[in-house]
């Protein structure tokens, strides 16, 4: 099969359009989250997504519509626990994550066990993305990327030195709340691409790949975005050509690029001589 024929399939086109936008979104947010030591937030919120999907299936509702508000509320819950309850970020994520997964298991059990649909959300299937989902992915991704573009300086300042950002008059609490909401929305969108189980990989791996050789914050965001986009496109191609699960293939391409970036830094980077 040649490239033209491959690209002529509607489901491949949908997968590439939605997946590309979501992968760039994950990379940009991932850089900020990893630097703020909130790497596991994707994992935690994806477990909440599992609870949301199980609830939607038990009630026979559309999973995205039920998961989205639940995950957004949970992200605020994590933020409030960190601010008010003297709980470290990783512990707050673990608490919310456990609640999500426990509710999911209970609901799945009550409504007749783990069926095929629930498994498809656990492991994702980008090739089965619907027109409605692609529209949601395009609109939400563009909104999130625009928000990050316009508030880039503020986000950078909060990420590097929150106290200085506050002293400079940046509305840190408001921006933190918006960033949490954007992360929640991104996690829900990502479940269709790589599945609930692998969502955090798309947030974390492109960021840590970028950090191997990045020469600045803006530079890190650009490298992470390119690495994530490349992994998505290559992952979709490889998975289709070799009949492999798309989500896991995308993640493994990401891991491959991370190893490449690590080796490059080790042999040719500024730390090579250390």
């Amino acid at each position: 099969m040649d490239l033209i024929e491959f690209l002529s399939y509607g489901f491949i086109q949908r997968a590439l359009i939605a997946g590309s936008l979501i992968s760039v979104l994950c990379a940009v947010l991932g850089v900020v989250l990893v630097l703020r030591r909130l790497s596991m937030i994707g994992d935690g919120l994806s477990h909440v997504t599992f609870g949301g999907v199980a609830l939607a299936m038990a009630l026979n509702f559309y999973p995205l519509a039920v998961s989205l508000p639940i995950v957004v509320l949970s992200s605020f819950g994590i933020l409030k626990m960190m601010e008010k309850a003297r709980v470290f970020g990783d512990a707050a994520i673990a608490v919310v994550s456990s609640i999500g997964i426990a509710i999911g298991i209970l609901l799945a059990s009550i409504s007749g066990g783990f069926n095929v649909d629930l498994f498809s959300y656990l492991f994702g299937n980008i090739l089965s993305i619907s027109t409605l989902e692609i529209a949601a992915a395009v609109v939400i991704s563009l909104m999130v990327l625009a928000a990050i573009y316009f508030y880039f300086d503020e986000i950078f300042s909060i990420t590097f030195d929150e106290e200085f950002a506050r002293a400079s008059g940046i509305p840190v609490d408001r921006i933190n709340a918006v960033m949490m909401m954007l992360t929640a929305v991104t996690v829900v969108l990502t479940m269709k691409v790589v599945g609930i189980m692998l969502t955090s990989a798309l947030l974390v791996i492109p960021a840590v790949t970028a950090f191997q050789n990045a020469r600045g914050f803006r530079n890190a965001i650009i490298i992470a975005s390119i690495s994530s986009l490349l992994s998505l496109v290559a992952g979709v191609f490889i998975s289709f050509a070799l009949n492999l699960p798309a989500g896991a293939t995308i993640v493994m391409v990401n891991v491959f690029l991370f190893c490449g970036a690590f080796l490059f830094r080790h042999f040719f980077g500024s730390h090579a001589a250390e």
């Binding site: 950078f156 300042s157 008059g169 950090f211 020469r215 600045g216 914050f217 803006r218």
Partner: peptide, 18 residues
């Protein structure tokens, strides 16, 4: 943290830019 000297200094101008 992957940030350059110039990027760090430019943070001091955020209030001015805002």
């Amino acid at each position: 943290f992957p940030t350059t000297v110039t990027e760090v200094i430019s943070q001091g101008l955020i209030a001015t830019r805002r």
